[in-house]
Amino acid sequence: MAQKERVGVVVSNKMDKTAVVAVENRSPHPKYGKIVVKTKKYKAHDPENQCQEGDRVRIRETRPLSKTKRWELAEIISTKAI
């Protein structure tokens, strides 16, 4: 089975070796057709603490690393402009 990948924005990096990534899912409402935005947060393993808040990252599914951590950082797509 292929590993799932998601692209999102880092919303927190306050934990050691962990980043919280918010992933947006945009889909039309089944009845009304309006685009509805749903956001889900994933805890991702960041072994070198290289993510900063606001960075756009790609995360990859992995084995369970802790009680809530099942994703790992695959790459940093873009950094937050200062």
Rank of each mutant, 00 (worst) to 15 (best):
Q3R: 09
Q3A: 08
Q3P: 06
E5P: 11
E5M: 13
V10Q: 14
V11S: 07
V11P: 14
K14V: 12
K14F: 14
K17M: 04
K17S: 05
A19H: 07
A19M: 11
E24L: 07
R26V: 13
R26E: 14
S27K: 13
H29V: 01
P30R: 02
K34T: 01
I35L: 05
V36W: 09
V37L: 05
V37G: 02
K38C: 00
T39H: 07
T39E: 11
T39L: 10
K41F: 11
Y42L: 01
K43T: 06
D46C: 02
P47Y: 10
C51N: 03
Q52P: 00
E53K: 06
E53M: 03
G54F: 06
R56Q: 15
R58S: 14
I59S: 08
R60P: 10
R60C: 11
E61H: 00
T62I: 09
R63M: 01
R63P: 03
P64E: 15
P64D: 15
L65P: 00
K67N: 14
K69I: 08
R70Y: 13
R70C: 14
R70K: 13
E72A: 07
I76N: 01
I76W: 04
I76Y: 00
I77D: 12
I77F: 09
S78P: 14
T79N: 14
K80E: 08
A81W: 09
A81Y: 11
